[in-house]
């Protein structure tokens, strides 16, 4: 009974985890280099950026929205921060500036959607272009590179033998989980996605909370920008292209319904890892990038199909 209820509650995440384990087992069998601690830390580091963006995307999709602008917001907040650093701003100030720029772009999305009543697809499509253009204008189209070691430590530093980006990812997911399951913002996110009208008629400030959800997505994109910039020692105005698709894919693989109202944050983390493991494994196997794209697409489809089959079986 206990096990059954556990499965009912977390069934979707367990399915995703099962896919991840299956995939890892297959890659373990195929490549001698796959199953090692250093490779898993490697995968975790590579996954961190997409996973952090996807955490914000999960909030947005649970609220029955979509955010196409995360990649562009990443680029804009990245070049702004990089320029500040090069102008001699202290690191904490530059980081704060980066997060503020991201959150502001996100809240602009939120205001357009909640107050302007624009469909999320349109509002964030516009922001995708606006923020990208702003990043190019701001940086004059050139990458901004070369930072102090203190800043770069964010990406290549370690704590307890585990790289900092992995810790940051873990912290983001822990906090996101608590926010989603234990706070009013989290509850209202589900409620708005499940039934906006009923939520509105329950006296919830729907506009405010929608705006908060998009701001959060922007903030997390900016956090990803910090990691990416520190990792490459360069902020590019063209960075983050197609990142929105990766984030949406991780979220959907993780079992969040595009219709809204349903989803678990750890499902998204597993989804991001499935994509990371796949890319890593295919690299290790020397598979060409053309084949990689096909395989990743197929896995997205299989994961979602598998989930639908399990769901049918459960109900």
């Amino acid at each position: 009974m206990r096990v059954k209820s556990l499965f009912l509650q977390h069934g979707r995440q367990l399915t995703t985890l099962f896919v991840l384990i299956l995939l890892s087992a297959a890659l373990w069998a195929l490549s001698p280099h796959f199953m090692s601690l250093s490779n898993w830390l490697n995968i975790a580091q590579q996954t961190a950026i997409n996973a952090i963006i996807a955490a914000g995307m999960t909030f947005v999709i649970i609220s029955a929205g979509i955010d196409l602008s995360v990649g562009s917001i990443l680029a804009l907040s990245g070049v702004v921060m990089a320029s500040a650093l090069q102008a001699g701003a202290p690191v904490p100030l530059a980081l704060l500036l980066c997060l503020v720029v991201g959150a502001l772009c996100g809240s602009a999305n939120g205001l357009l959607i909640a107050r302007g009543k624009l469909p999320p697809f349109i509002a964030t499509l516009g922001m995708m272009s606006v923020a990208r253009g702003a990043a190019l204008i701001f940086s004059d189209g050139r990458p901004v590179s070369g930072f102090a070691p203190g800043f770069r430590a964010i990406a290549n530093g370690e704590f307890l033998a585990i790289p900092l980006p992995v810790w940051i990812m873990a912290a983001v997911y822990l906090i996101a989980h608590l926010v989603l399951s234990r706070t009013r913002l989290g509850r209202y996110t589900y409620a708005i996605g499940g039934n906006e009208e009923a939520t509105l008629l329950s006296g919830v400030n729907v506009k405010l909370h929608k705006t908060l959800v998009y701001s959060l997505a922007g903030l997390l994109s900016a956090l990803a920008a910090i990691l990416l910039t520190a990792r490459l020692n360069s902020a590019q105005p063209i960075a983050g292209m197609n990142y929105e698709l990766d984030a949406i894919a991780a979220t959907v693989i993780g079992g969040t319904s595009l219709l809204g109202g349903e989803g678990q944050i750890f499902g998204t983390l597993i989804g991001a890892f499935i994509m990371g493991v796949l890319r890593n494994g295919l690299n290790l196997l020397g598979v060409s990038s053309f084949v990689q794209q096909t395989v990743i697409g197929a896995v997205i489809i299989v994961a979602v199909l598998l989930d639908m089959m399990m769901k049918k079986r459960r109900s």
């Binding site: 280099h33 960075a239 890319r279």
Partner: peptide
């Protein structure tokens, strides 16, 4: 121009 993806490839080759 995907520098991040190229970086991942190099990391993975180091693992290999």
């Amino acid at each position: 121009l995907d520098v991040e993806k190229q970086m991942q490839i190099i990391e993975n080759l180091i693992q290999r």
